[in-house]
């Protein structure tokens, strides 16, 4: 009888230990995206511009104050003025901040030059700044730790390779890049679970992020028919078809009420 129980416990333990198989890193995703065929030079003289704003509609949500008491260093950085969540930031003029606006479809399939200047994201006061960034695929992202405390940087992409690295207090900046287009990649710090940022990675330079006035500008766009998308972390996305002619400047506004979460 007793041996029955020993066997049952042993079999259960071995089964569970065995069923937790490992997932090999998806190294294939690490490959660089294949460059498109060599294209004619960009005709900047005929380039179009799209500008607009992202309006916020509805009751302005109250963002909760972040409790940073788990790490006194973080708490001290905001002493007297607690940091609030940046999930929804409504500007004074009724527009929405931190919206990633990009040309989703229609951009000519060519190798767009990747800027040599990295886009910086800083960890300061145990928050990410800026909260949302955009880069081209293959462009460097410079990650800086300005805090006298440890952070870990953990992007959670679905298309690109996921990674998780620590960065010591005031440590050397890290340079990272993502090979493939992906909108958006959430980034978090597991040491400080309130820290969250988003990275938009696109294959071309036609993207912008709304700031304190809620506006955006996308310049240098070849004449053509496009789908332009506005993405927000809480409200989702809004897609609009738009056609621009040579040297044309068009306005395209978005509204949080028209955005849909997937």
């Amino acid at each position: 009888m007793n041996s029955i129980f020993v066997s049952v416990l042993a079999a259960s333990a071995l089964f569970v230990a065995g069923c937790g198989g490992s997932k090999a890193p998806e190294t294939a995703k690490e490959e660089s995206a294949a460059p498109a065929a060599t294209a004619p030079p960009i005709d900047e003289a005929n380039a179009a511009t799209i500008t607009g704003k992202v309006a916020f509609t509805g009751d302005k949500p109250t963002m909760r104050a972040i409790d940073m008491s788990a790490n006194p260093i973080c708490a001290r950085a905001h002493a007297g003025s607690p940091q609030h969540s940046e999930e929804v930031v409504v500007n004074g003029n009724g527009t929405l901040k931190n919206v990633f606006v990009w040309i989703k479809t229609g951009v000519p399939d060519r190798q767009w030059p990747v800027p040599s200047t990295p886009v910086e994201i800083a960890q300061k006061g145990c928050t990410y700044g800026p909260h949302v960034i955009g880069v081209m695929a293959g462009q460097d992202i410079k990650i800086v730790n300005d805090d006298p405390t440890n952070h870990n940087i953990h992007p959670m992409p679905k298309v690109n390779q996921e990674w998780n690295e620590s960065q010591p207090p005031n440590g050397d900046p890290k340079l990272k890049k993502f090979a493939r287009e992906e909108v958006m990649i959430p980034v978090k710090c597991n040491v400080h679970p309130w820290m969250r940022a988003y990275i938009g990675v696109v294959n071309h330079p036609f993207f912008a992020i709304t700031g304190d006035d809620g506006t955006f500008t996308i310049k240098g766009l070849p004449p053509g028919k496009y789908t332009i998308e506005a993405w927000h972390e809480k409200y989702g996305t809004q897609d609009v078809d738009i056609t621009v002619g040579a040297k044309e400047s068009k306005t395209q506004d978005f509204d949080s009420a028209q955005m849909k979460t997937s």
């Binding site: 788990a70 790490n71 440890n150 597991n190 040491v191 400080h192």
Partner: peptide, 21 residues
């Protein structure tokens, strides 16, 4: 994942016990 390495923690036996570490 607040400690990205294993079996050591931040390369040490005893890392600073701050935040989720």
């Amino acid at each position: 994942l607040s400690v990205p390495d294993w079996p050591l923690s931040y390369g040490k036996l005893m890392p600073p016990m701050e935040g989720n570490i």
